[in-house]
Design a protein around this nucleic acid. Sequence first.
DNA 1: CCACGGCCCTTTGAATTCGAAGCAGTAGAC
DNA 2: GTCTACTGCTTCGAATTCAAAGGGCCGTGG
Lengths: 167, 167
Amino acid sequence: MADSPRSLDPVQLGAYFDLIEVSSLLRYAVEQQLREAGDLSYVQFQLLARLGDSPTGSQRMTDLADGVVYSRSGLTYQAGLLEKAGLVVRAPSPEDERVTTVTITDAGRALLAKVLPGHVEVVRGMLFEPLSREDVMTLAGLLAPVRDHMRSTPPRSAAPRRRQREA
Amino acid sequence: MADSPRSLDPVQLGAYFDLIEVSSLLRYAVEQQLREAGDLSYVQFQLLARLGDSPTGSQRMTDLADGVVYSRSGLTYQAGLLEKAGLVVRAPSPEDERVTTVTITDAGRALLAKVLPGHVEVVRGMLFEPLSREDVMTLAGLLAPVRDHMRSTPPRSAAPRRRQREA
DNA sequence: CCACGGCCCTTTGAATTCGAAGCAGTAGAC
DNA sequence: GTCTACTGCTTCGAATTCAAAGGGCCGTGG
C-alpha cells in the first residue's frame, strides 16, 4: 500500500456512475411493469420467484430474507401482504415452532406465470437490447467476480446506521 | 421479429441478477459510509456532489431533480433537510419567481470534501478491487451504450403506478 | 425439572419515498 | 388589460422500508 490514490480515475468514475444509473432505471422500469401486470412490487416478485424456484415451493422466513437482502421486519410486512392477497401461505414449522414456513399457492404460481413474460421483455428491451451475445457473456464474466467479492466482504456494521437526526 | 424467445438464456439471467445484486450491495455499503462519515443519505450526497461540480455552485430545482431521477416532491423534502442542516441555501430566482435556485454553502463544500475520500475508498474496495484496469475499461464500454439506450427509452407512463391497493 | 441464553419472527415508531392536488408566477391570446 | 393555459415548486396522504424492542420457542447447564 505504498500509494493510495486520492480519487478514482475518469474511467472508473464513469463505470461507477453508469452502473448506478443503469441499475436504477432498470429497477424503476421493472417495478412499473410488475405493478401494472400484477400489482406486485419488485420485492414481492422476488419473493414469489424464489418460492417458485424452490422444489417444494416453501422456504423459511430467514432464508428468504437472506436471499432478498431485506431486513426481517421488512420481510414480515411483505409476506403479510402476499398472504392477504392469497399468493402465499404462512405456517409454523412442525419441527421447530419458532420457524415460519412460507409456501407459494397455486394463485401465486399463476400470477408469477402471468407477469413473467412481461418482466422478461422489459429486461430484454432495456438491458440486453444494445448488447450482443458476446457482450452479455463479457458482462456476466465481469460481474460474477465482483458479486463474489462483495458477498465475501459483508457490510461491517460498525455503527447501526442512524437515520437523519442531527443534520 | 420472426422469433420471440420466451425467456432469457442462462447467461443473460445471470448477468441480470448479478447486476441487481451488485448495485444493491454497493448502494447499501455506500449509504452506510455516508451516514457514518457525515450523516448524509446517498440522495443528499448526490445533490451536494452535483452542486459542488457546478461552476456557480447553484442549480435550479428541476434540473437537480432530473439528474437524480427523483420526483419533485422528493427533492423538495431532501432540499429542505439540507437547508435545515445549513449545507445549501434556497432562493427564488430574480428572473423567474417560479424558479427556486439551490446553492451549496461553504459548510456544504466542507462536508462534501470530508466524506469524499471515504466514499471513494468504499467504491474502490467493493467494486474495483476484483477488476483489472482493463476490466474496468471493458465494463465502462459495455455500460455506456446501455445507459444511452435507457435514457433514450424513457419509462413510458402508461398507467401512473398505483401503490398496493387491491392485492 | 427449571432457569438461562439464544434464535426466529412480529410489532412499533421514525424516516424516506412517490403521486396527486394545490398554489404561485409567467406567457400568450384576445 | 384581462383571461387562460402552462410551468415550477410545495403540501398532503399513503406506501414501504429499517432498527429497536417485544414475545414465544428451543437447547443446555445446573
